[in-house]
């Protein structure tokens, strides 16, 4: 089984605090790994670092089998590895829903027609195609998160990293995201403390505590 993500001895400091201390993690294709840990434990930091968005004090990162050291190497991988932020407003950049979802494929170099089709398909996958022309700021929190997810799915990623995908969502939206993730068939690394998510989706569970990872 190929490892889609590999962290070796990764050490990260944030604001003079040691957040990740020689962390080792491997996510194989087909796995759905849930990352648990208390508030401030560093789950978001781990996900950001995995995509090369934070400077590493120490360690190696491999994305989709390719070691990534420089920004350019990470940039290449980011189309195929999606990160869903906890606050969707951080990554929703297009004016309307459809335009935002098209951004990813367009930037990967796809033609306008292909990007359009991919965006529509992704929106259908999250059941929000009816909101295609809605301006982003008219959406509810749950809808924004689903649109952000669609934006990642449109790029046909191999691996998805998700930061607390069900937090602050109502029952129905929560359920919706869980079933979308389940049916996607994608390899997942999810930071979450949602019990239902863990029991529904997780194939493996790990705990981040005191800057180190422990299997569960």
């Amino acid at each position: 089984m190929t490892a889609l993500l590999r962290l070796q001895n990764v050490t990260v400091h944030r604001r003079n605090r040691l957040v990740l201390d020689q962390v080792n993690l491997s996510v194989a294709e087909g796995e759905r790994v849930v990352l648990r840990g208390g508030i401030g434990a560093g789950k978001s930091t781990l996900l950001l670092a995995a995509l090369g968005l934070l400077p590493l004090e120490n360690g190696e990162i491999e994305l989709l089998g390719t070691p990534c050291r420089r920004e350019s190497e990470f940039a290449l991988a980011r189309g195929r590895v999606g990160l869903l932020f906890q606050d969707p407003d951080d990554q929703l950049l297009g004016p309307t829903v459809l335009e935002d979802v098209e951004l990813g494929p367009l930037n990967l170099g796809w033609s306008a027609g292909d990007a359009h089709v991919a965006a529509e398909t992704a929106l259908e996958q999250v059941a929000l195609i009816h909101l295609a022309d809605r301006p982003i700021h008219e959406l509810s929190g749950g809808e924004k998160r689903l649109v952000a997810l669609a934006g990642l799915l449109a790029m046909e990623p191999k691996l998805l990293l998700l930061d607390e995908p069900t937090v602050a969502l109502d029952e129905q939206s929560s359920q919706q995201i869980l079933s979308i993730l389940e049916n996607s068939g994608l390899t997942l690394l999810i930071a979450s403390h949602d019990q239902r998510l863990i029991s529904t989706l997780a194939t493996r569970s790990i705990m981040l505590r005191a800057a180190t990872l422990q299997d569960q």
Binding site: A75, R78, G79, L83, F85, L103, G104, N107, G151
Partner: peptide, 11 residues
């Protein structure tokens, strides 16, 4: 955070 969001989406 928006800068991270831009980078994460490969823009």
């Amino acid at each position: 955070r928006t800068e991270l969001g831009l980078k994460a989406r490969g823009l």
